[in-house]
């Protein structure tokens, strides 16, 4: 992230250390992850300890400290999704794309993540692919949704 962009994000949040979480969110929105160099620049620009920035970035599950792939597939692991078969869905995608949850395929095509409930419990198991919600999923439907990505 270039300096001007970073500064504009910091300014948008009034340079207030209390808004660090929101600042990190905005950085991630731009970059899709939190690059080390950007966090170091952020700490220096806001005159904050890097240790504090790193602590926050690693505490919250929303942040990724590794680059994400072109596509993002997030499987909801809420209780309702769990009892309706979400773990098997994750197993299935892991096998199909040869990637473990929390990681990205070697070709950087797909990142597979899990989330602890998105509040669409009546539609479980639920999977979000590139921002689009897909309810009542099973292995077959999953394959259809992910087919275009697989064939890319």
């Amino acid at each position: 992230m270039d300096d001007a962009k970073l500064k504009s994000i910091i300014e948008k949040h009034d340079r207030d250390p209390a808004n660090l979480l929101a600042i990190l969110m905005d950085i991630q929105k731009e970059e899709r992850w939190l690059p080390k160099e950007t966090l170091k620049a952020l700490a220096a620009e806001m005159n904050l300890p890097l240790a504090r920035v790193y602590a926050l970035a690693t505490f919250f599950a929303a942040f990724s400290l590794k680059p994400r792939g072109k596509h993002l597939c997030t499987v909801c692991m809420g209780t309702a999704c769990h009892v309706r078969g979400a773990p098997r869905l994750v197993d299935h995608i892991q096998r199909e794309f040869d990637v473990l949850a929390g990681n990205t395929t070697a070709d950087m095509k797909l990142t597979l993540e899990t989330v602890n409930c998105v509040g669409a419990c009546a539609l479980g198991p639920l999977v979000i692919v590139d921002g689009e919600y897909h309810g009542n999923m099973n292995a077959g439907k999953m394959d259809r949704v992910l087919k275009p990505i697989k064939q890319e």
Partner: peptide, 25 residues
């Protein structure tokens, strides 16, 4: 409005307040 960062523990009131202050929850 403050947005959380994906941490269940921030539903606990003192953790939530720490998070509003810009600290870990």
């Amino acid at each position: 409005v403050n947005k959380g960062g994906g941490a269940f523990v921030c539903g606990e009131s003192t953790a939530l307040m720490a998070s509003i202050e810009g600290d870990v929850g």
